[in-house]
Structure formats: C-alpha cells, structure tokens
Amino acid sequence: MSNPTSKAYAWYYHVLDWLLRALARLPLRALYVLADFLYVVLAYVVRYRKQVVLTNLRNSFPEKPEGEIQRIQRLFYRNFAQVLVETLKLADMPDAELKQRVHFGNPEVLENHFARGRTVLGLSSHAGNWEWVLTSGALWLSAHADGVYKPLMNPFFEKFMRQLRTRTGAGLIPMRDTLRDLVQRKGEVRVVSMLSDQAAGPEDRPYWTTFMNQEAGFYTSADRLASRFHCPVVYVSIRRLRRGYYEIVLTDLYDGDAPLPTDSFPITEAFVRQLETDIRLFPADYLWTHRRWKHKREVKN
C-alpha cells in the first residue's frame, strides 16, 4: 500500500498517517482494548450524537421500555467502537485472516448470476461491519467486486479510506459516476455494491415508505438501474456472530429478467423490508448515529 501523505497535506497529516498505520499493526485483541476505551469516550465523555441515537431508537421501537432503549444504545456504542478499529485493521490484516473472519454463507446466490454473465447489484446497509463487506467480497467471489461510495471532503481521509477499501482488489465508483460506469462497463461480470440506506432528500425524488415506524425517503437507483441494464439485484445482510466475526447472507430480490413497473419501486421496497427485519433481529448492530429520518415528505397543496 502506498503512503497516502503528500506535500499537499498539512504536516500533522504525516504524523496522523504514521500513527494510524502503527496502530493497524497491532493484533486485533489489542485494538479491541482501544475499542473499549473509545466506547467510554463516545458514549459517556463526548456523548457522540447521543440525542440522535436515542431519538432514532425511541421512534423505531416505540413498543420497547426506556430501559431496553438504553441497553441497545450502550451495545450500539460498543459495537460502533469495534467497527472503527476493525476498519483501521484493514490497513494491515492479511487476506486469509479477513476471509476467515467474514464468512459468506451462500455465495452461490451471486455465483449463479455470474455464471449467466450478469452484472449484479448488491444492496447492503450500515449494519454489522459494512466496511468489511466489499473487501471480503473481493476475496470470496469469482467475479470482480465494486462499491459505490460518496467521496470524503478531506483529501487525506479520502485517500486513506480508499486504500483500505481497495486493498483486497475491490474497486470504488463515486456515487455521481454510477450510471456512467454501468454504461461504459455494460455486460461485465461483476457485483456492484451499494449502501442503499442513505437518506435521500426531496431533490433526489425519493421513494417514500414506512421504515422502522417512520416515514423515510429512499434512493430509487436500484430499480432504475436494474430495469435499464437488466441487472439482478441481491440483498446483502452482514450479521455479527461474535466480536470480530461476521456472516454474510445473500437474498435474491430481482432476477434481472422480469419487467419492472415504471410507477413503483418494488426492489427498493423489498430492500427496506429485508433491512427492517435485520434491524429488529440485531438492533444494536445498525448505525443509529446516522440521521436517517432527517428529511420529510413535501406536502403538495
């Protein structure tokens, strides 16, 4: 991996780069000690987006007593701290160890589509360790794995994270270039992974549906791209088995052949229902600091 620092960065980024790479060389068991410290800092010292987390949990689980909401919140911060150090460990983790820690329970779901010469859209979310999905997929699957992502504003962190995410051979596609990429690489056998639980604003012409007891707008790109390029669509669920170990379970949402309606978004709706099921099963594994429900549907007079 090349060094991400350059003369364009301020001097302290050189120090930060050295520190991050030094930490990444520690074994995960040592990094989990750091994660326990980060948990305390995030949850009790800086109280990182604590009100956002509590509001999201209370609105999503109105049937749960406050004591259970508080318990899920604590577990979320602990899991979130572990995801942070696990993501950093990508800078130094051997491919064999990553493949051992992330198990694909049914890779044949994707492999069957690859055998038909298809580009597959993989819809995942900010659950479990979302940063290990693409990187492990590049090791498990016979075809190439690309991920659609939103570039970071800070050039140092953009380059640093890009290197972590591509170090196992995966590719990255800036969100704004998704359509162009699919046009230029039409017919290529691969999976294109999309984190499809991002909050879509009114300007994005979202699909509005009820998600975790709240109205939420979702991007409709999965339906539109699948229809235009005849891409099968697969839901990607990443489930925490225990600390540092995950299982990925794949579910077909669309075969790429059947006609899709132009006035509704069945793929997006199916994704939302699958994600909702996962969140209810593993509530502490979802990214509750995300302002998922910040947009409201515009009321037309």
Rank of each mutant, 00 (worst) to 15 (best):
residue 251 T to L: 09
residue 172 L to E: 00
residue 91 A to N: 05
residue 153 M to N: 15
residue 101 R to T: 04
residue 294 K to W: 00
residue 198 Q to F: 03
residue 240 R to E: 06
residue 179 L to P: 06
residue 90 L to M: 09
residue 40 V to Y: 15
residue 6 S to K: 08
residue 17 D to T: 11
residue 152 L to G: 08
residue 17 D to Q: 13
residue 276 E to P: 03
residue 183 V to A: 02
residue 238 I to R: 06
residue 194 M to V: 15
residue 168 T to R: 05
residue 3 N to K: 08
residue 119 T to M: 13
residue 241 L to E: 02
residue 67 G to M: 09
residue 84 L to R: 10
residue 269 E to F: 00
residue 7 K to I: 11
residue 208 W to A: 13
residue 125 S to K: 10
residue 44 Y to D: 14
residue 12 Y to F: 08
residue 118 R to L: 05
residue 132 W to T: 00
residue 58 R to T: 03
residue 285 D to P: 09
residue 243 R to H: 04
residue 86 E to H: 03
residue 15 V to N: 03
residue 176 R to V: 06
residue 57 L to P: 03
residue 107 P to T: 11
residue 228 R to V: 05
residue 150 K to R: 15
residue 80 F to L: 15
residue 161 M to T: 12
residue 132 W to L: 01
residue 162 R to W: 01
residue 43 A to C: 15
residue 276 E to H: 02
residue 178 T to S: 12
residue 51 Q to I: 02
residue 190 R to V: 09
residue 137 G to I: 12
residue 126 H to V: 04
residue 250 L to Y: 12
residue 255 D to H: 02
residue 145 A to M: 13
residue 254 Y to Q: 09
residue 98 L to C: 09
residue 51 Q to A: 06
residue 270 A to C: 05
residue 188 E to H: 07
residue 276 E to W: 02
residue 2 S to K: 14
residue 130 W to C: 05
residue 5 T to C: 04
residue 297 R to H: 01
residue 44 Y to R: 15
residue 193 S to K: 07
residue 174 P to K: 12
residue 286 Y to V: 00
residue 287 L to G: 11
residue 32 Y to N: 00
residue 259 P to Y: 09
residue 29 R to F: 06
residue 184 Q to Y: 00
residue 18 W to I: 04
residue 256 G to L: 06
residue 103 H to Q: 14
residue 7 K to G: 00
residue 184 Q to T: 01
residue 154 N to L: 11
residue 103 H to R: 15
residue 230 H to M: 01
residue 274 Q to S: 10
residue 246 Y to D: 04
residue 187 G to A: 00
residue 222 A to T: 08
residue 253 L to Q: 10
residue 230 H to A: 04
residue 231 C to S: 13
residue 275 L to Q: 08
residue 112 N to A: 06
residue 76 F to K: 13
residue 167 R to V: 10
residue 213 N to I: 08
residue 63 E to K: 03
residue 96 A to H: 10
residue 20 L to W: 07
residue 246 Y to F: 15
residue 105 G to P: 00
residue 66 E to R: 12
residue 89 K to E: 00
residue 296 K to D: 01
residue 270 A to W: 02
residue 252 D to M: 09
residue 223 D to Q: 05
residue 54 L to G: 02
residue 245 Y to P: 04
residue 243 R to T: 09
residue 152 L to A: 14
residue 233 V to Y: 07
residue 142 S to D: 11
residue 8 A to Y: 02
residue 25 R to L: 14
residue 77 Y to E: 10
residue 249 V to Y: 04
residue 195 L to E: 08
residue 123 L to A: 03
residue 133 V to L: 14
residue 252 D to P: 12
residue 291 R to P: 09
residue 9 Y to V: 00
residue 9 Y to H: 13
residue 275 L to H: 05
residue 202 P to L: 05
residue 13 Y to K: 14
residue 4 P to M: 11
residue 88 L to H: 08
residue 172 L to M: 10
residue 177 D to T: 07
residue 10 A to R: 12
residue 112 N to I: 01
residue 243 R to D: 07
residue 285 D to C: 12
residue 284 A to T: 01
residue 204 D to V: 05
residue 70 Q to E: 14
residue 106 N to F: 10
residue 81 A to K: 13
residue 232 P to K: 06
residue 107 P to F: 12
residue 220 T to Q: 03
residue 290 H to G: 02
residue 253 L to R: 13
residue 84 L to D: 06
residue 207 Y to K: 03
residue 149 Y to T: 14
residue 188 E to D: 11
residue 282 F to P: 02
residue 244 G to S: 07
residue 231 C to Q: 10
residue 245 Y to H: 15
residue 230 H to R: 09
residue 29 R to K: 01
residue 99 K to F: 03
residue 138 A to N: 10
residue 28 L to I: 12
residue 229 F to C: 05
residue 11 W to D: 01
